[in-house]
Design a protein around this nucleic acid. Structure first.
Lengths: 211, 211
DNA sequence: ATAAAATATGACTAAGAAGTCACATGACTT
DNA sequence: AAGTCATGTGACTTCTTAGTCATATTTTAT
């Protein structure tokens, strides 16, 4: 947690620091991100930084909390009653939220992905422990309920499927970001998600009754 | 390319250096990997290192070439006639190769993944340009042929599918590595791949004729 | 044996990193 | 106005990094 000094700051200055940090962590991993560059970018003195934050990790966790907060804002309307719609509708909503978040906050997405991609480092475990609900655990609960309702095939390995859904979630955002330069909620975006859910739902095969 | 001095080295010493480098690059990203730790690990002097390699990047590329070489060794029997079997059989073979490689060379896999996960950094582009055939481009060719043969549904977006297959390829190895501590080619492994291909082929839905 | 070429070495440089601290400035209280 | 407390500051310390280089050793050629 940042110190009181940071929260007492005039909003303009506080966001200036946060935005400099977001720029830095979007461009560099936690390890290679530089406090020196951040204070330069924010136009504050090095000493001031350590009036606001205990250390680099303190700032990083603060930014992660902003990300989680922002992401929850995008998700909440979908997640409120996760077990009251069929699983593919729910997945569609979740991916829509995820992609919408990605388009509105590409830098935040970048920071989050950079973290997810380096699960070996200590900072990963620390943050995941502080923010329990990991994505694949959420998916697992949803998929279990869906299987109980008979919406997905019996023989699907749920644990694996939820793991894959998590990774695909990241991949689909990356894919769309790479393809589209507009970065706006568009029909393209819905098409991307539809194709994607279609893939998950029916697979690629053409022999519909096959096996 | 490493200097002649390196290739003139007695094999024992050469592999000692390579193994120290592999350990380092498996534990740290390219940026945070330390030449100092590598020379300590290999038991050579700092100066010797720069007799063998132009710089850190030179060593890194050498290790990447080892990885590509090793990976090709595992793949070759499968890839020789990629268009002569149905696409799901081919995919199964490719994932089998991939997982087999992952189990035999977990550190090399780790290094490769670390690179793939940070496409923003210069080193990524450099290496990808030097080693043309990117995974999703290979998948795309295979999928195009399969669509022509009518093996996969018309409405599948091939570009997206090949992108997803690449990411899933990484994910499935990671998943299996995380689950199994034995690290040996086993029936478990085949089961994992079967589930996975099954997922790709038929999707998750239970309404087989649905839409 | 002598000369020459190849290889080994670790102290060294310069740059950048995280974090500290004595002091300066500003604001609010009494 | 004087005093107190919160905030601002940048030079500084300590550490680690990549890469260099003069010198020492070993190997090869004559």
């Amino acid at each position: 947690m940042p110190k009181d000094t940071f929260f007492n700051l005039p909003e303009e200055k506080r966001t200036r620091v946060e935005e400099a940090a977001i720029d830095e962590f979007a461009s560099y991993t936690y390890e290679t991100a530089s406090v020196n560059r951040i204070v330069d970018g924010a136009g504050i003195a090095k000493g001031s930084f350590y009036q606001y934050f205990k250390d680099k990790k303190d700032l990083y966790k603060h930014i992660m909390n902003i990300i989680i907060q922002k992401k929850l804002e995008y998700m909440s309307p979908t997640i409120t009653n996760p077990f009251e719609v069929d699983v593919f509708t729910l997945l569609r909503e979740m991916y829509k939220s995820g992609l919408s978040f990605a388009l509105s906050h590409p830098k935040l997405l970048e920071i989050g992905n950079k973290l997810l991609l380096d699960p070996s480092h200590d900072i990963y475990k620390e943050i995941m422990e502080e923010n329990k609900a990991r994505s694949d655990e959420v998916f697992l609960l949803i998929l279990k309920a869906a299987k109980d309702r008979g919406e997905i095939r019996e023989e699907i390995d749920l644990e694996m499927a939820s793991y894959l859904l998590t990774n695909l979630n990241i991949a689909v955002s990356d894919y769309y970001m790479k393809k589209s330069e507009k970065h706006e909620y568009s029909k393209d975006m819905m098409k991307t998600i539809d194709k994607f859910i279609d893939f998950i739902q029916y697979g690629m095969t053409n022999t519909k009754g096959g096996d």
